[in-house]
Amino acid sequence: MSMLSLVDVEISYGQMEVIKKVSIEVNKGELVSVIGPNGAGKSTLIKAIMGLKDIKSGKIMYDGIDITVMPAWERAGLGIGYVPEGRRVFGNLTVEENLKMGCYKVKDNNKNKNNINKVYELFPRLFERKNQLAKTMSGGEQQMLAIGRALVLEPKLLLIDEVSMGLMPIMVNTCFKIIKDLNDSGITVLVVEQNANKVLKIANRGYVIETGHIVIEDTAENLRSNDVVKKAYLGS
């Protein structure tokens, strides 16, 4: 059963085409990764799925609904969660306020409290710092907050952009473990990542994107043993 499908999506910045006829399929319950080098168009692609970047042509279907021209805030209401590249937490708001923003769409206070508490259970560190301004936290803590903020929305599909960027190795492992756990709990996940080695260990399937084209599409296991991928991304 398809959760998300991109059909022949093309995206450009002005005259420059950055995504050329890309088709991606994510099934319900899957953890799919898009890997590729810097500048391949990974972030652009995930922004387009969230509705933060307009697409030039093609179609985006989510859970049976055509969301191609839907604004981002409506997509959020349909259950698409987004963890942006570089965290982008609300620096001048406290941790708790950041999480409250995450449940903006749900006006049921009890439910919101419940969802925020669930995030605190997942990240006890955030509970300890709940009254602290987000900008005063470390990169890893901010990443937890960015994930938590997307989770209070109770997303069915979670889009994660470069979770490992700028984090120390131990935090990277923690973040990937959490993503795997979230996927196990039933959330469909699409991860865009440069750290191919790590992400292919937790993903079910993967796409390799290069200069706006999908060049390889396979199961994560096959990708790990694929010679091209090995050479270009796994460093062996």
């Binding site: 969230m50 509705g51 933060l52 604004p71 981002a72 805030w73 409506e74 959020a76 209401g77 987004y82 942006p84 982008r88 937490v89 609300f90 620096g91 001048n92 708001l93 923003m101 995450g102 903006y104 769409k105 903020r149 997307a150 929305l153």
Partner: peptide, 12 residues
């Protein structure tokens, strides 16, 4: 703080 992040959380 961050328009893009805000809209990704469902804020018009």
């Amino acid at each position: 703080n961050d328009e893009m992040a805000a809209s990704s959380l469902g804020i018009d």
